[in-house]
Design a protein around this nucleic acid. Structure first.
Lengths: 352, 352
DNA sequence: CTGAAAGCGCTAACAA
DNA sequence: TTGTTAGCGCTTTCAG
């Protein structure tokens, strides 16, 4: 039982047998035109007879063609969510190195529509072979996508998407389901009466609420399974640790019976400080996404479960299947590719 | 912000800058020897400075060498455990295509030592560049490994291993830890007094007890955390569904208070029939490994948690790091590579 | 429309 | 120990 990776029949064999030059065979294989119908048929026949398949290595080596993929995602600081997406792109690019692939990153400010629009413009100017992006400003995304379509530039979504568009493919989780999973882990085998749901204060510029689907999944699960459970929603500031601490302290002092805590955004680490300084063995905390600081909270035992997915995997797979399509013409098997949701607990963290 | 993946830096640039020939650079890069220490250092310095990475396409195109890796694993039918391992190998081979790599599969019958020995012979005859295998017949594995060593053929283990041998690397889970994780999931947030641990009757030929480490991890966790918990061990026959049903029925009729059930082998599906026909909303069942039939039990809700790992990942990683060593001489970072343990629940099963 | 030929970056055999 | 060089199979001008 064996599996060989290389084929011996070359373009030369085909050329000789078809009594044409290698250049002509190449033109036929890649449908570059400028070949008579007669020759085309002759060559195709020989190709079929010999079972010729082009050698990708040689092809890509000889080819001068450069592919530019624009990656349009939010800007990030070290340790933030989008850094991992970025890493996935970089790894993906490495995996297909050998092709003359160039990644152009356009990183926009999630709180600033203008900056997003500027990035879109820059991408259109550079005529990329394709665009891989996420979708924050829905309206703007739609407009951008339509312009890409009119220019015949394919595009793909990572992490989140706009369903109505003609994107080539999507990689990400189903956020609604992940929210429900978090709710399950928070409440399983408990009789839950109160849950503190901690949200982030977003400045007014922020019309977008990227975590809404996940939060809805969470809330719907609770409502369905614990109809009498009370949800206490707290808002904390992502920037101001001091006030966050205050807010939590006040709330939990007033409501000591609330033992179940969840954050449906990716920054459960923001409450780590409070949890650490106010230990309570009966408390259960569930968060999302495996940012390094979240993992630290998990490891320390302040957070019990983290619902996540392999973040870089999403961009890695999105990029590699996208370029498979663009470079080799391989149509991706599925349109929507949902990745697996991981349940992370202190006890299965070691080799993650 | 841009990142070019097809570095333009070629072996030529390195050669020029280091004032040596391309051949010498090649020798250094692939550690082919016949280079003075002095030159090696000089070249390596330049490589680091320039950030040179070899062009895989060109390399493989020019290279005539073929690498044969023998994969020695149990034969399988569709949907069985080893099929997933097989898939991991195939994917791994694709990931390093570009090298003239050939996989030779030798699939043996797990219940037939003779067939294993025959496979070993065939592998020795074909003089492979390396062997990736699992370890079922311990004695025979040791003998085979020693013959490989005397022939200077490196080998690696997937899924399980024989600790005493000089294997290059291993990919798999830490069975002891996975047992403890299963125990945790079974008992979390409960006050557990009784646990039914269901084991398999193994015929006398089967001296090996491959699941012992996992079971010990399980039992130790319970003993540590619930010192007064009673473990009821039942033995069922993997072949005889009828008697299995009987055994379970009798036991649970006599002990209706036992609500926690675990199986530390990979065949929790064997008790699915009993569970289905005797529903009990308060029952909690935990099993191991994501065999299709186990997943079905999970999906139906008969089993609450499955502790598993991404099976193809083990063989994928084992193969790719193994060939990295064989082809590029990259010594694997670790000898024993434990992969992440997945927690599988009905709720995160969809996109697994 | 078609053919010839110069590379793409690297390897390996041979020379030195 | 090192340098030189002929390819690997394909693409892409450039002439016809």
């Amino acid at each position: 039982m064996s599996k060989r990776s290389s084929d011996q029949i070359t373009i030369f064999d085909v050329a000789k047998r078809a009594k044409v030059s290698r250049g002509t065979v190449d033109r036929v294989v890649y449908k570059r035109g400028r070949v008579s119908q007669n020759t085309i048929e002759k060559v195709q026949k020989v190709i079929a007879e010999l079972g010729y398949t082009p050698n990708q290595n040689a092809s890509s080596l000889a080819s001068k063609r450069e592919y530019t993929i624009a990656c349009l995602i939010p800007q990030f600081r070290e340790g933030e969510y989008w850094e991992k997406i970025y890493e996935g792109f970089i790894k993906g690019a490495r995996a297909i190195s050998g092709y003359n692939l160039r990644l152009e990153f356009e990183l926009y400010d999630q709180t600033d529509l203008e900056s997003y629009l500027r990035c879109c413009e820059r991408i259109l100017e550079m005529h990329p072979s394709g665009v891989v992006m996420n979708a924050v400003f829905k309206e703007a995304v739609i407009q951008f996508a339509q312009r890409l379509e009119s220019l015949n530039i394919p595009y793909a979504f990572v992490d989140n998407k706009v369903d109505e568009l003609n994107y080539l493919l999507y990689y990400g989780v189903d956020p609604y389901k992940s929210g429900a999973l978090g709710a399950f882990l928070l409440t399983t085998r408990c009789d839950v009466k109160d849950i503190a749901l901690i949200r982030l204060i977003r400045d007014s510029k922020h019309k977008a609420d990227p975590n809404a689907p996940r939060r809805h999944g969470f809330l719907d699960y609770i409502e369905e399974n614990y109809p009498h459970c009370k949800i206490h929603t707290l808002f904390i500031s992502p920037e101001d640790a001091q006030s966050t601490y205050q807010t939590l302290k006040e709330f939990f002092t007033a409501h000591p019976e609330v033992r179940h805590i969840a954050m449906t955004n990716s920054r459960v680490f923001l409450i780590d400080d409070y949890l650490r300084r106010n230990p309570d063995p009966n408390r259960i905390v569930v968060g999302f996404d495996d940012l390094d600081r979240n993992l630290a909270s998990l490891r320390e035992g302040h957070v019990e479960y983290l619902v996540t997915r392999h973040i870089p995997m999403q961009s890695y797979l999105a990029l590699t299947s996208f370029t498979d399509y663009i470079i080799k013409g391989i149509t991706p098997p599925r349109h929507n590719n949902y990745v697996h949701m991981d349940i992370l607990h202190r006890r299965n963290l070691d080799d993650y």
